[in-house]
Design a protein around this nucleic acid. Sequence first.
DNA 1: AATCGTCACAACCGCCGCCTA
DNA 2: TTAGGCGGCGGTTGTGACGAT
Length: 280
Amino acid sequence: MDVKARDCVHQINEDDHTELRRGPWTVEEDFKLIEYIATHGEGRWNSLARCAGLKRTGKSCRLRWLNYLRPDVRRGNITLEEQLLILELHSRWGNRWSKIAQHLPGRTDNEIKNYWRTRVQKHAKQLKCDVNSKQFKDTMRYLWMPRLVERIQAAAAAASASTTTDVPATSTTTSTSVFGDDQLGGAQQVTSSSYALENSSTTVASSDSFGTQVSQFSDFSDHYTTNNNISINYPTQELSDNYYNHGMDVQSLEQFNPWLDNLFNAEDFYFLQQQLNFNM
DNA sequence: AATCGTCACAACCGCCGCCTA
DNA sequence: TTAGGCGGCGGTTGTGACGAT
């Protein structure tokens, strides 16, 4: 805080008996806040609000700046990588939105919180289960997150294929480098296998390697259209039990919503249902 | 065209912990 | 030591946009 701003702390406008404004911010208010911070920097928000001539609480100014006006704030669609990261980090930390937001540069805790509530919780509701229930978490771990990884890999493969022909088409190790610090153990590679290894709260069927499992799972969409008698090492049996023993409505999976549509296509749902029935 | 329901997101509220006088 | 101010955080609400009827 500079001298002017600091002095302003003691210069409470005693004549200002007007009520504090609430509700949506106007362009003029935004401009005042941006200009003041550009000149004086962030400081104590209550005094900043007064000095900037804003009839707002310090909290309101802080929120407006951090969630909307800040230059480095990212707006717009949550990418697949970001979706994956949110699911992953939420499974670790729960509703620690600010902590999760620290790992998504430019995204605010408010945005992530809204994303979770509008997309994820809505889908849990569709499945008639609690968002904190084990079956829902397992669904995320063993179906949605690997599916997201697949889509990220597919997108990366498509991108690289357009630039080079040297990339092996069967690679399943493409990962997203998403962690900017070592709080999660360094530059963690987000792959299907990492979920199986790190997040499994259940016994995963034995196999030569997780890579094999991942490969099989990752090839689901290829196999199920040509060979329905495939071997699945992902814990779909348990998932199936969870669905049917806890009254989860698999049919409702077909009720697409924008978020879910981003993860699955119609074939995915068909396959999911086939596998759940197959394992009953 | 009007109404209604749903969705997405901005903004507010209340609580908590930290800081400072 | 303690009380008040403040910022941070998670939960909740309000509202505009949009699609369905």
